[in-house]
Structures are given as structure tokens and as C-alpha cells.
Design a protein around this nucleic acid. Structure first.
Lengths: 214, 214
DNA sequence: AGTCAAACTGCAGTTACTGCATATTGAGGT
DNA sequence: ACCTCAATATGCAGTAACTGCAGTTTGACT
């Protein structure tokens, strides 16, 4: 009797939610990519190392990237979001960096895995790209959050629609800031993630006034 | 007698520079993708339509995407660059949009092909992503150009290195603006490319002062 | 006519990824 | 203890993108 659908994440969004198998695959993937590079690491190699079949691999991860990057969605931390919205300062962008970057890059489950994953990602341009796309995936969410801050800063003549569009634009600017941050990390400009984030914040507050046409 | 290397762009960056074959492949690719969608269009189909072998296809284009997106590098227009640098206004970002967007999205060779390509790209998220990556590829170049403007706006305490980093950051912000512009296009917010660009510019100058911490 | 190189082609192979059918395992109900 | 069921893992065959290699056509220049 056909049990049609069986696997954990059959062709839908990958889950990897904590299952031991997924975790094994992840750490094998990260380790092998660190050792041999991304292109030189085949899915078969990862499967052999993790002791699973190729089919199982793809049951857990939609793509090879996903196994390396990790699939835990970079959710926004609720309490941080509340604090962000509550703040009334004009440093919307600068505040937003920490909202995404700190939980997304640092906070995690297994610190060792996170560190190795970080290395694996920053060692490869294509993977970096994917990572940035993941950040981009919460852009819509960020736009919404940003809207709360911007609404309070709106000037007389602006409609709600204007504010919404400005929020979308700001969310994209934020993505740019994130990319700059990631680039700094890739350049290996020393320091922890937190210090790089702080540095970005400083540069941002320095340059923004110059760009705002009075 | 083996003539080892023969093809125009053997595994290096694709060229497509004007050769009739490449142009035929391009227009076949765009047309088929418009008709059947990106995923449903195989390379074989494109080859059949263009009357070339698959190997020839990959001699001209490194990837399937490339054939649809086009490979004419979005070079910066020299005269526009000069004008951009000459300008002393603080609207660095807003000015930069036009520097990239107008030649990149509008100005082209075959207007018909450009229009269809535009449709094909905006109809597919993945292709859009690629397009944005192409814009991103001139980020380094833009950072350099932006540096000229920012240097003039630098404040007393800043070193050259500071200005350079700020330029990099600004180039990434610009990429964000470009993404917002592209998103607007995809939403089909009516209007020509030029009008969308103008709209983006307006929103940008409206929102930037709010983000600059006094 | 002869030479040379650019462009085109065929073919076999690798790799990522998918659909389908099947096997295993473990928890719950009877 | 037995059956059920659902989640998970697997084998297998297939598709499609892309690559390397080796060979052929084409066209310009001598």
C-alpha cells in the first residue's frame, strides 16, 4: 500500500528542525566544505560522511547550499523587535543592523558548528551570496517593523502609502548595510562579529548625514 | 591534428559580443522563456530554436541564465560618470541611481529584445536575483566613483581610509536602492523605467533625512 | 592551393536534484 | 501480543545543467 508522502520535508521548505540526522548532515557538510572547498565537495561525499543515502540528504535539505548554510530561519527575536519599535530615535538603520545581525550571525545552537559554518560561508563567494539572500528573505518582515519607526517620523504631507514605500526602501537599504557588514567579515577585518557590527554602525552614522540632502 | 582551443569563450567569461550566433541564442532564449517560463524552458529547446548545438550554446554563455539576462556588461557611461563626479551636491545616492539604472535598464542595442528581456526577467524571481547580482558586480566600480563625491563632503576628523569605507558602504546602500527600484518594476507599478527611477529618487530624498541622526 | 585560427559540433561523463515505490521503525490503540 | 499508522530512510531510474575532449567546418590571408 503506497504511503505516498513520507519524508520530513518532501520538496517543500526544508526543515532540519533538530532531528539528529539533519544535524549530522549539516556538520558533515560544513566540515567537508571547509576541508575541500564548496565545489570539490559533492553531495555523495557528504552523505558518505554522514552515513545517509543521497535521497535522505535531499529529504532534509532542498539544495546542497542549504546543508552548509543551515536552514534555521533567521527569525527576528521578539523582545528585540519590541525594543526596536519602542525606540524613538532616528537611527532606524543602525538599530536595525543589530536586530538582524546579532541573532542571525552569532546567536545559535551549537557555537562550534556556527563558527565553522561562518568560516565555510565566508570562504566562498557563492555561499556568501546565498547567505545574503537569506537575510533578504526577512526584508518584508523588516519593512513592516521599520514602518512603526518611520510612521512616527513622518512629515505632514505624507500619506500612509508614502510611509509604507519609504519603509520598503529602508528595508532594502538595510539589506545593503548587511551586505557591507558581511563583506567586512569576509575581508577578515579582524574582530568579533559584534565589533564589526559596531564599526558598521559608526560608519553608517558618519555617512548618512552626508547623503541626506540637507 | 588537434586544434585544441577553438570556441569563442571556452570556459572563461562569456562574450556574446555581437556575434550573430550569440544574438540568435539570446533572442531564442528570451522568447521561449517568455512563452513557457524559465524552468520549463530547457537549454535543448533554446538550442533547437536557435539552430545550434548545445555545446555551442555553452561556448557562448556560461549558464542558462546568462542567455536570458544577456551578457553585455552594464558598463558605466563615461560621460555620465564625469558629470556625476563633477556634481557637488549631497544627493550622491539619488544621482547614482540614474548612473546605473538608466543605461543598464533602458539603453541597449536592440530595443525590442531589451523590452522582452525585461519582461522575461521580471517574470521570474530567480532571474531577477541574477540581474541584481549583475548590478552588484559594478559595486566596486561605483564605490570608487562615489569616493570622489564623498571625499569632498568629508568632515575634519576623517582619514582617507574612513572615506573609502564610507564609499563602500554607500555603494552597498546604492545596491539596496537598485533592488528597491527593481522590486517596483516587478510589482508592475506602471510607468516607464524612467518614471519609476524618478519615483525612487523622490522617496529616497524623502526618507534619508529621517534616517540621518541629526 | 595552402595555412591557420576561429567557430561549430558530437559525445561521453559528472553532478545536482526529482518522482515513485518500498522498507524500517517506533508509538498507540485494541 | 498484535495490528495500525505515520514518520523516516532508502534504492532506483530519470532529467537537466554543465564540462572536457576530440574532431570538423568556415573564412581570411598568403
Amino acid at each position: 500500500m503506497s504511503k505516498t508522502d513520507a519524508s520530513p520535508a518532501r520538496s517543500s521548505g526544508p526543515s532540519s528542525r533538530g532531528t539528529a540526522t539533519a544535524r549530522r548532515i549539516e556538520s558533515s557538510a560544513v566540515a567537508l566544505v571547509l576541508k575541500h572547498g564548496y565545489d570539490a565537495t559533492t553531495v555523495d561525499m557528504i552523505c558518505a560522511d554522514a552515513g545517509v543515502s543521497q535521497r535522505t540528504f535531499f529529504n532534509h535539505f532542498a539544495t546542497k547550499d542549504a546543508a552548509v548554510i543551515g536552514t534555521d530561519e533567521p527569525r527576528l527575536d521578539e523582545s528585540r523587535v519590541r525594543a526596536f519599535i519602542a525606540s524613538t530615535g532616528p537611527d532606524v538603520l543602525a538599530d536595525a543592523i543589530e536586530l538582524i545581525a546579532l541573532p542571525g550571525l552569532e546567536g545559535g545552537l551549537d557555537p562550534d558548528l556556527m563558527r565553522m559554518r561562518m568560516l565555510a560561508i565566508t570562504s566562498n563567494g557563492a555561499l556568501m551570496q546565498r547567505q545574503l539572500e537569506r537575510f533578504a528573505s526577512i526584508e518584508a518582515e523588516m519593512a513592516e517593523v521599520i514602518e512603526y519607526r518611520l510612521a512616527r517620523l513622518s512629515t505632514p504631507g505624507e500619506s500612509d502609502a508614502d510611509v509604507r514605500e519609504q519603509s520598503r526602501l529602508t528595508a532594502q537599504l538595510l539589506a545593503g548595510v548587511m551586505r557591507y557588514t558581511a563583506e567586512s567579515l569576509m575581508r577578515g577585518d579582524a574582530g568579533s562579529v559584534a565589533s564589526i557590527v559596531a564599526q558598521t554602525r559608526a560608519r553608517l552614522t558618519a555617512v548618512l548625514p552626508k547623503l541626506a540632502g540637507r
